[in-house]
């Protein structure tokens, strides 16, 4: 009897793990319920300049999902590896207008519009699918916090900033729906599935 019970338990777990693939992606961060409304953590309004000198705000992405990361051009440590993984995502979705890539520079003093435009060109990004965003003063450090990415100035760190190489997946309502480790190609391969799932959730076939 115990064996039989264990069998059904195993079957149940298997069934649950199979069906969980159909579960929607989680909403990450703190969720509040106010007056019966469920309020998920949301990236606050923002306004930055991109590598073409255009203003990019939260309104710019209202019809798209996006993958964000934090970097700077003179970063000698993890950034080249993370950028290479962002390039994999760029190449995979470059013909898909439902998704954008967003790289926030942590170093607005050195990463001017021409520096970022040159960087984009040198890694082979010609499409409008990838924005490199410049914030004023500490705006970028502040918004990093909203993406749950630790980023801060540190004179002892290589290049002057400490930050993580996380890639953050954000839906059309600016809710954070997934992460990948941008220094780990395997994690990014898994991330493709998360991105595909969010695309299916956000743009259901009618």
């Amino acid at each position: 009897m115990i064996q039989k019970g264990a069998f059904y338990l195993t079957l149940g777990i298997l069934f649950m793990s199979c069906s969980s693939e159909k579960q929607p992606l989680p909403y990450l961060g703190f969720t509040e319920i106010i007056n019966g409304d469920t309020l998920h953590h949301k990236i606050p309004d923002f306004s930055f300049l991109n590598q073409d000198g255009q203003v990019v705000s939260n309104e710019s992405y209202k019809d798209q999902i996006y993958v964000a990361d934090f970097f700077f051009v003179h970063c000698p440590s993890i950034c080249p590896k993370v950028t290479q993984q962002m390039l994999r995502i760029h190449d995979r979705y470059k013909d898909d207008s439902r998704i954008k890539l967003v790289a926030h520079t942590l170093d607005p003093d050195r990463d001017s519009i021409p520096v970022l435009r040159d960087y984009a060109a040198k890694i082979g990004v010609k499409s409008q699918r990838w924005d490199f965003l410049i914030g004023k003063d500490d705006e970028t450090l502040e918004i990093a916090d909203q993406y749950f990415v630790p980023a801060f100035k540190d004179p002892d760190a290589p290049g002057g900033f400490d930050h993580s190489g996380k890639l953050i997946l954000v839906d059309r309502n600016r809710h954070v729906r997934g992460f990948a480790e941008g220094t780990d190609p395997e994690s990014v391969t898994q991330f493709f599935k998360t991105i595909d799932q969010l695309l299916n959730e956000e743009f259901p076939k009618s």
Binding site: P80, T83, Q84, A121, K122, I123
Partner: peptide, 12 residues
């Protein structure tokens, strides 16, 4: 980069 291929025109 893992296979020594560099990064675009940025890293040889």
């Amino acid at each position: 980069m893992e296979s020594g291929q560099g990064l675009g025109e940025l890293i040889p």
